[in-house]
Design a protein around this nucleic acid. Structure first.
Lengths: 190, 190
DNA sequence: GGCTCCATGTAAGGAGTTACATGATTCA
DNA sequence: TGAATCATGTAACTCCTTACATGGAGCC
C-alpha cells in the first residue's frame, strides 16, 4: 500500500528542488524552473524538458503545485505556485535532513582514481592526476566568480549554500595534491 | 547510428566501476562485485542484484567481460574476468577524465540548505544545520576508521582514493560551521 | 529437519535522458 | 522575411529500484 503521504515523504531530489525553485522564484513558469536548473553549477541533472515538465505534472497531481493559466499570445502560459501543502512538503524535506544525505557524495574523480593502478605507466597515472587537478582548478575559478556574484546580490542563504561547492572543490584540490606528492615518493613502475 | 565503440566510450559510471572491481578482485563472481558495491561508503548505488547482474550481462555483450562457469553444487557459479578490451575500456575511462567529472558533486545537504530560508523560524534553521553537522560528524568517524583499515592493509591507491571522502566530509564540516556562525550574526526572524 | 546465509537471477515499474515536434515572439 | 530564441510539450529508450523467486551449503 502506497498512500499519498508516503509519496510526498518520498519525493525525489529533483521534485523537491522544483518545489524549492517555485518557492524562491515566486509564481513562475516551468520554463523558468528549467533555466534555474540549467544555470546550476552541478553536473547532476540535465534540466531537460523531459524531466522538468513531467515532474511538475506529478507535483500538481499530488496537490503540491498549483498552475494558473495567464494569457500570452495564442497559447497562453501557465504560472506555477506552491500550495500550502507544497510549502509543507518543502519544509519537511529540509528538516528531515535524512542521515544518508551526509554520506560522502559519489565523486567521479574519486571513483576513477580508485582504480588508478590499472594504468600501465607511472607517467599515465601522473597525467591523469594532473588532468583532474587542472579540471578542478578551472571549475573552481568559475564557481568562485559565480559565488561572488551571489554575494554581491546579497543573496543571503543562497550565497552561503553555494559556498559549499567552493569548499568541496578546494578540498578536492588539496586531496589531489596530496596524492600527487605521495605517488612521487613511490617506487616507480617504469 | 550508435556503434559498439560509441557504446564503450559511453559506459555508465556503474558499468565502468564493475570493470574496475573485476580488475581488482581478479576472477570473481558477480556476487562479489555486488558485495564490493554494498561495502562502499557512498550512498549513490544500492548494489541491488537488479542493477549488477544486468550490467554484467551488458558488459559481456560488449566483449569487455568473459564468464567462465566453475562447478559448484548443481547450479555451478560463473567467474568473471576482464578481457583485454575490458582492460582497455577501464584504462580509457580513467584517462579520459572528462571535464564534467570535476564539477561540484550534487551534495544533498547543500541542496537542502539552498532553500533554508523557506523554514519559518530561526530555531528551525539552526536545528537543521545542527542535524547536518551531527550526521556529517558521525559519517566522518566511521569513514576515518574504514580508511585507517585500508591504510594498514597497505592498500596503496585504494587508501589514497578513499581519503578523498575524508577530505570532502571535513570540508563540509567546516562549511556548516561557517554557515552556523554567519547565521548567528544575522538579525533574527523570531 | 529447519534456519540462515550464500548466490543468482527475474519481473514490474518509475524516473530521467535524448531527440523530436510545434508554435509564438523578437529582432536584424 | 527569415533566424534565433522563448516556451511547452511528447515519445522512445535505458538504467536503476524494489520486490520476489529459487536453490544449494553450512550448521544446530
Amino acid at each position: 500500500m502506497t498512500s499519498t503521504s508516503d509519496r510526498i515523504e518520498g519525493l525525489t531530489e529533483l521534485e523537491s528542488c522544483v518545489l524549492g525553485v517555485v518557492w524562491r522564484r515566486g509564481p513562475c513558469s516551468a520554463y523558468v524552473v528549467r533555466l534555474e536548473f540549467a544555470h546550476s553549477h552541478s553536473a547532476q541533472w540535465s534540466a531537460s524538458a523531459g524531466s522538468i515538465y513531467p515532474a511538475v505534472k506529478r507535483l500538481q497531481g499530488l496537490g503540491l503545485l498549483d498552475s494558473t493559466p495567464r494569457p500570452w499570445g495564442r497559447r497562453g502560459r501557465t504560472e506555477l505556485t506552491l500550495t500550502s501543502a507544497g510549502l509543507g512538503a518543502l519544509r519537511a524535506w529540509i528538516q528531515r535532513m535524512d542521515s544518508w544525505t551526509a554520506d560522502p557524495t559519489s565523486d567521479p574523480v574519486r571513483t576513477r582514481l580508485f582504480f588508478l593502478d590499472a594504468l600501465e605507466l607511472d607517467e599515465e597515472r601522473r597525467a591523469a592526476i594532473r588532468k583532474a587537478e587542472e579540471n578542478t582548478r578551472s571549475k573552481l575559478e568559475s564557481l568562485r566568480r559565480h559565488v561572488e556574484d551571489l554575494k554581491h546580490a546579497s543573496a543571503g542563504v543562497e550565497y552561503l549554500a553555494a559556498l559549499g561547492g567552493v569548499f568541496e572543490l578546494e578540498a578536492r584540490s588539496r586531496w589531489l595534491e596530496a596524492i600527487r606528492e605521495t605517488l612521487a615518493l613511490r617506487p616507480s613502475s617504469e
